[in-house]
Amino acid sequence: MRHLLSKERWILILRLGTTAVFLLPLFWMLLTALHPPGTPLPQSLNLWPNTPTLNNFIRIWQIIPIGRFTLNSLLVSTIAIPLTLLISSWAGFSIAHLPPTSQRRWVLLSLALLMIPGIALWFTRFLLYRQLHWLNTYWALIVPAWMGTTPFYVLMFYRAFRRIPSAIYDAARLETSHAFQIWAYIAFPLARPTALGVSLLSLTFYWGDFLSPLLYLRTESLYTLPIAIQLLQQMAPSDWPLLMATAVYTSLIPVTLFLLTQPHFAHLNRRNP
């Protein structure tokens, strides 16, 4: 039994070590953000600043209209995420109820489209948005939600809906013949863990989307947080405490939401939901 115990301990140590490796960059980022501005850069491994300060976070406000950028990011996310959920779950639901051959075709099609790199679409989308007068509007940032953001989310929902036992669907069909109602009252509530996962992933996507505003936005009052980081980097390339503070600030909302919802993910990967 001692042998087994020590093995478990080994695994725990390994797990702790791995976790530490993954968290270390973020930890360093946080510490540097607390470093007082203007003083020489820390040159020893004793990275804990002598006089930790939140001053850097205030400085962001003085340099760029970060409040406006935050609001823009919030606005884009609050529209794009529900829209993504709606469209990707509808699509996943529909595919899951097609005849098997069509199902297979749709899955493969989605997989194939997943493989088209975004770069291939950069400037043709630019030309398209120009034609539709979407350039320099929030639409340019939100519009991917119209296709469920990425086929990946559709496939996630497809997987979840397929796992719901057919007996449940059959019972539901006795009550109503409306596919929409089955989706709204039966299927979607059962796929909540997946919905949560998709919400979180799409939050990561829209909150961190650097390319769309870079390529399609021009007006400062429309900028989102990722652009704020680029702006500050160009204004103060060596002001690391300021840059790290901005990095921490922009990560704040997704990280908080992730940690709050984290307990729910424990169920996400169980074999039977």
């Binding site: 791995t18 976790t19 360093w28 980022m29 980081i229 990280v255 992730f258 984290q262 993910f265 424990a266």
Partner: peptide
């Protein structure tokens, strides 16, 4: 679940913020 969360955490960080952190690291 906390170990899993910790491993996933860097993926949550917005890409430009993440790049900035590494530029410093």
């Amino acid at each position: 679940s906390w170990f899993r969360a910790a491993i996933f955490l860097p993926t949550i960080i917005p890409a430009p913020a993440y790049v900035m952190a590494w530029l410093w690291l």
